[in-house]
Every structure is written in structure tokens, then in C-alpha cells.
């Protein structure tokens, strides 16, 4: 899906992910134990997940959504709390790259 956007502003992560083709699985392929995140000081996932799947709630809690995940594996390699149980989406689901 190509959305015509010739503006010169920085796009939000949602606007960028809208360009992609997904077949989102019904159940998440990544499980985050957000209890462990409460004790995490740095929360590198909020900046280093390229798909912005990890966001902070107003209370400072980690909110995780798997729908826009591009299946890179960054989060599982950087999590200081070992809070992430990571897998690829089930057969055929998830991101579908075309021009990469």
C-alpha cells in the first residue's frame, strides 16, 4: 500500500508501518513479561525497536503491541531484564516484504 505523502516532515512510526504489507497473526508471537519492565531503568526497547512496538504508558509502564513487528529480533537481544519470550510468527504470518 503506497500512501501519497510528499511532505517534508518526519513521519510517525505508524505512518511508516502503514506502507507495509502484513498478515497479522491472531495471537502474539512475542510475549513480554511487563512486570519485569517495571524494574527496568533504561528501557532501551522504547527507542531501539525499529517498529515502535514498545511504548511507555503515562504511568511509565511498558505497553507492547506485536502487530507492526518487523521480526528483526532486536528487542530480544537488548532487553536487560530478560523479559521477552521471542518467536517468529506462525507459518506465513507477519511482515511480507516486497522491495527490500
Amino acid at each position: 500500500m503506497s500512501i501519497s505523502d510528499k511532505s517534508e516532515r518526519a513521519l510517525s512510526i505508524d505512518e511508516l508501518l502503514q506502507r507495509n504489507v502484513y498478515d497479522v497473526d491472531d495471537e502474539p508471537h512475542i510475549i513480554v513479561d511487563t512486570e519485569k519492565c517495571l524494574k527496568c531503568r533504561v528501557k532501551p526497547c522504547t527507542l531501539l525497536c525499529p517498529a515502535g512496538c514498545y511504548t511507555l504508558s503515562p504511568d511509565g509502564e511498558i505497553l507492547f503491541s506485536y502487530e507492526g513487528c518487523v521480526e528483526c529480533g532486536t528487542c530480544r537481544s537488548i532487553c536487560p531484564m530478560d523479559a521477552i519470550t521471542w518467536n517468529y510468527p506462525r507459518s506465513g504470518r507477519g511482515i511480507y516484504y516486497r522491495f527490500t
Binding site: 503506497s2 500512501i3 501519497s4 505523502d5 510528499k6 513521519l11 511508516l16 508501518l17 506502507r19 507495509n20 525499529p50 517498529a51 518487523v70 528483526c72 529480533g73 532486536t74 537481544s77 511482515i95 516484504y97 516486497r98 522491495f99 527490500t100
Partner: peptide
């Protein structure tokens, strides 16, 4: 005058 048609990441 370009359109972004895909965004992705990989290790």
C-alpha cells in the same frame, strides 16, 4: 516528490 513504499529492519 517520492512516496515511501516500504519500511523495514533486519539484524
Amino acid at each position: 516528490d517520492s512516496d515511501i513504499v516500504e519500511y523495514g529492519a533486519h539484524l
